[in-house]
């Protein structure tokens, strides 16, 4: 009897929920806003699906309907990745400045 690969993915999913649960509870409340912006950025890893879709067009028609949706998703996810990580960095930088001032 072979185990369906879906079950493996489900196991990863459920274990990750537990990891997420413990990791997020340990986040200090003062960093909850950066937490939201960074989760935003990392959930844009959905771009991997967008890239596969965009590159799947046939050589003589690279803009078939499915790849167009891929291209659009790339733009959306890219805005999020760059915007999310940079704005998080900008916020975290402000938490640093004061430390230095105090020293």
């Amino acid at each position: 009897m072979e185990i369906d690969p879906f079950i493996f993915r489900l196991s990863i999913f459920i274990l990750s929920i537990f990891i997420g649960y413990y990791v997020v509870w340990s986040v200090t409340p003062s960093l909850h806003t950066p937490l939201m912006s960074v989760t935003n950025a990392i959930s844009s890893v959905i771009i991997v699906g967008a890239i596969i879709a965009a590159l799947a067009g046939s050589p003589n028609n690279i803009f078939d309907i499915s790849s167009i949706f891929g291209f659009l998703a790339i733009v959306l996810a890219a805005v999020n990745i760059f915007g999310g990580f940079l704005v998080t960095q900008r916020m975290l930088q402000m938490y640093k400045k004061k430390k230095n001032n105090k020293k």
Partner: peptide
């Protein structure tokens, strides 16, 4: 997509939002 990076991330973000 059978993509572990996305599954892990989705679970992390999902539970993060739920806890908040």
């Amino acid at each position: 997509l059978e993509n572990t990076a996305l599954i892990i991330t989705g679970a992390l973000v999902g539970s993060s939002g739920a806890i908040l």
